[in-house]
Design a protein around this nucleic acid. Structure first.
Lengths: 224, 224
DNA sequence: TCAATAGTGTCTGTTAGACATTATGGA
DNA sequence: TCCATAATGTCTAACAGACACTATTGA
């Protein structure tokens, strides 16, 4: 009835894993075993009996040594754009790992700042652009910024991450007021001193349920 | 080198097409040619040389006689859930057609209010739930409400559509103020009288570019 | 001491939501 | 005329952004 050996899927799972690197987003790339120096998003033709989410998690864990703190499907990309494989459809996943996560040893993987990317296959380039858009859009629905930070962080760290993702400066007092109103973080007992200046208290991500205030509706951004 | 005849893809394209029907969202379903009365989301194994978007548009046009006013990919759904086909991956698309669009004659298609749906295959049920979530999320990024309305509509029509999609009542004066500030609609010369009460002016969707005001940041909705 | 960063209090213009009022048709 | 709905004006509480100020460290 069912085959004993699992077949390879005719499709691929591709990963766009981000981290924060020196005030820039960075993407995990994999050095292809080809002749020349070539880089690609990690991808694989998964076994047919695996779930999409399962494949993505497994591939990420194999590449990084641990599961990303956040992993979500971006979508399917078809044969109108070239892919390293001959696959028909590639399903892209977006993952986030905290700043400071090193790529696995061996040199097969490396972090590339999104501003200094090598040439990628067209289909993977499209995925990457879509992934960055997705992060912006998902910021206020998922704890994107927190998954790019270590478990404890200063409020300045957090604000810088938001500014990196949004691509604009934020007002310090307003940011902290909004943070307090949203009950997203709780203070720890630790403080961190970095160079000069007053030490900053460390916080951790600890969302509490709050009354769904959600004043008003937003029609502004309808035509971006 | 390349095959002469186009192969069928091992994957499927599935459509979740919505319209507005009596204060409810409704979905286009297709009567399967099986023995018993069974309904399914329209789906197809497209030829391998077609793009994903192209397939979705073609299938929608075949089912409805015209392209939906809005059509966007929802994502890929894998083999962890059952599908009418034996396909490995199904790529779902979400489409919107104006209220009042009839299903094609012949009885093969029908609109079902989302509250009164028949049993669907698990994978298609998951797509449907995802599609509804997507509409909510995309409302303030795409003209979702406008694509569910005819070309001209009253401001009350528009507000009702927003209320239907958001699942909550909106304040009339605030809604209209926000609408005016966003420069999304322009008045026509026509007025419509429905039963008693003052006739309402008809408007059309006509977005103008505006300065990106976008006051503040939204951290509230981070934990929904 | 100065410089630099963390964290907080206050003020002000803007706006969402409430309420009231006018406008205009049908019954 | 009364009623129902459209459309608009006004008031108020809430809030984003600006500014200023204090706090606390290293140089």
């Amino acid at each position: 009835m069912s085959e004993r050996r699992t077949r390879k899927s005719p499709n691929t799972i591709d990963l766009v894993v981000f981290t924060a690197l020196k005030d820039q987003l960075a993407v995990l790339l994999w050095r292809t075993p080809d002749a020349r120096e070539k880089w690609a998003l990690p991808w694989e033709q998964p076994p047919s009996d695996e779930t999409l989410d399962g494949s993505a998690g497994r591939i990420a864990a194999e590449a990084l040594g641990a599961l990303p703190g956040w992993l979500e499907q971006l979508g399917a990309f078809g044969n109108e754009k070239r892919h390293p494989s001959e696959s028909e459809i590639s399903v892209a996943f977006v993952g986030l790992v905290p700043a400071g996560t090193p790529p696995p040893v061996g040199g097969a993987y490396a972090w590339f700042p999104v501003g200094e990317l090598p040439i990628l296959a067209a289909r993977q380039r499209t995925m990457l652009d879509g992934a960055i858009s997705m992060l912006r859009v998902r910021m206020d629905q998922s704890p994107v910024a927190f998954r790019l930070l270590p478990p404890t962080f200063t409020l300045s760290d957090l604000q810088h991450m938001y500014e990196l993702l949004l691509g604009k400066r934020l007002h310090k007092a307003s940011f902290r007021r909004a943070l307090q109103a949203a009950w997203l973080v709780e203070p720890t007992e630790e403080w961190r001193s970095e160079g000069r200046g007053r030490p900053a208290q460390l916080f951790r991500y600890a969302p509490r349920k709050r009354r769904p205030t959600q004043r008003g509706i937003r029609l502004d951004m309808l035509t971006s």
